[in-house]
Amino acid sequence: MPLPLDQVIASGQVWQGRTNADCQPEHSVLDTGFRRLNEALPGHGWQSGQVCEIYAHSGHGEVSLVLPALARLSQQPRWILWVGSPHSEGAKLLPQAAALQQAGVDIRRVLLVHPKDEQQAMWSLEEGLKSGHCSAVLGWPGQLNKPHIRRLQLACSRHQSYCWLWPRIPFDPSGSPAAVRLGIERRSPTELSVECYKRRGLWPGQPFTLTLPDTASGKTALPVHSLQTQ
């Protein structure tokens, strides 16, 4: 006599794509700080031991997405390693300590690496992940090889750290070993459109809109003057 489907599901033999709480117990989950993003990510937040690729043009709010998580991680006595930086019309952008401090990140934990070439960048990323002394590793690689990402993903899952990559290359639809791949585009100064290209354990989702805290106009809310009056 065939078993009823309910019994098979109840005994845990069937994996179901829609169960969002499908998070392995060994992964710790970090609140992203954004309700909609939590809902979209497997495990309701950033999961440790998973490489996350974020595709966006610089200036589209791509770093704001992880700042709340970084602020939390910087409470740990471990490094937050920044490898490389995005480029803007040929010039390397430099992180500004004041902005990170305003976002609540303890900048004493931040260690920056300016790699000479892509090989050095990959080495630094992997070294940071393998050491186990980094709470998070952030990278802006100029090229992405699948074997490299696979290595990072393995090192990341072995040492349970957080890894975010902002590739400086267009999205590659042929796939990547990274566990999560997001695409970000800014709709308005405080609204981002987020598309989940890949999330491990779930189907890719529909794009959704995220509301950022109003960092650009600031807590002090400076008044807007019209240019004509000057």
Binding site: S58, G59, V63, S64, L67, S85, P86, S88, A91, L93, L94, P95, Q96, A97, A98, A99, L100, Q101, Q102, D106, I107, R108, R109, V110, T215, A216, S217, G218, K219, T220, L222
Partner: peptide, 17 residues
């Protein structure tokens, strides 16, 4: 990294040219 900011610092961007 232990220094404070100027009290009247407005919004600052993450990246600086």
């Amino acid at each position: 990294g232990t220094g404070a900011l100027h009290p009247h610092t407005g919004p600052r961007p993450v990246w600086l040219l």
